[in-house]
Simulated scan of single mutants.
Amino acid sequence: MLPWLILVSLGSSPALAQVRQVDVLVTVVKDRVVALPGSGSPVEEPLGVDETIVTTTAQGPAGFAQTSRRLLGFSSGLRRWTEVPLGIEEHVERHHVLPRLLMVQTNRRVHGFQESRGHWFSDALGPNESVKQLQGHGHVIVVVTSERALAFSAFTGGFFAVRWSAQEQMQSIDQTNDVTVIRTSARQLAFRSHAGGWTELK
């Protein structure tokens, strides 16, 4: 009987219960955007005068809302909204939301949000730089532009860039939850979610 009792005790322990991911739902109530986590109270973010909601979405513990003036990221772990203002004539072109991070591409910048830190990072696009591809899986999102590749991780701070050499062309991207490999006409580049940069595979 003793081993059975120990198994039951471990199965109901608070430590194991905390491992379970708590999903969040994002909705709009009158003049507020509201995050509804799986437990605890709703977390509200008031809208400004004449500020309107463009879109809302969520994946796992990460929530996202785009308004006419700003981008809002929600962290279930920290139970808070964090904003990044949109610049004058800055327009959102696409976004990608994963449970631990999200990416927003505009005509001026790329913005990345880490759910665990509740923090936004931004990187400006060059005057002639265009985004060709935005792809994410697990803990890494990669943005491929006409000039470089930008990696953004759920664990490390900021964007990590590698520039293309003259005449270099991207051929393919392979991804797991924590590793991204880009094959180009000249080399193979790898980015790992816990690393602080790209490495060339030789």
Rank of each mutant, 00 (worst) to 15 (best):
S193Y: 05
I88V: 13
E147L: 13
P14S: 00
A124F: 06
L102E: 08
T184Y: 08
N107A: 03
R94G: 00
E93L: 15
H96D: 13
L47F: 09
V43Y: 03
I141K: 07
V49H: 09
Q135W: 10
V144D: 07
V97I: 15
S13E: 00
W4E: 15
D31Q: 14
N128V: 14
A195E: 11
F113Y: 11
G157S: 11
Q188E: 14
Q171P: 04
E90W: 05
T180N: 05
Q175I: 08
H139K: 05
V144M: 14
Q175D: 02
S185I: 07
T27F: 08
V179W: 08
D23W: 06
L134W: 08
A195Y: 12
V29I: 04
D178C: 13
L125G: 01
L134R: 11
Q59D: 12
V143R: 06
V110P: 02
V104G: 03
E44L: 09
R108G: 03
A161V: 03
R148A: 14
S68N: 04
T27V: 15
Q133K: 13
Q188S: 10
E45S: 09
R80K: 10
S39W: 13
Q66W: 04
V22I: 14
I88A: 03
P37W: 11
R20Y: 11
I88Q: 05
L25Q: 11
K202S: 13
W81K: 02
E93K: 15
P85V: 06
E83W: 00
T52M: 14
V162F: 09
V110Q: 09
R69N: 12
T55P: 00
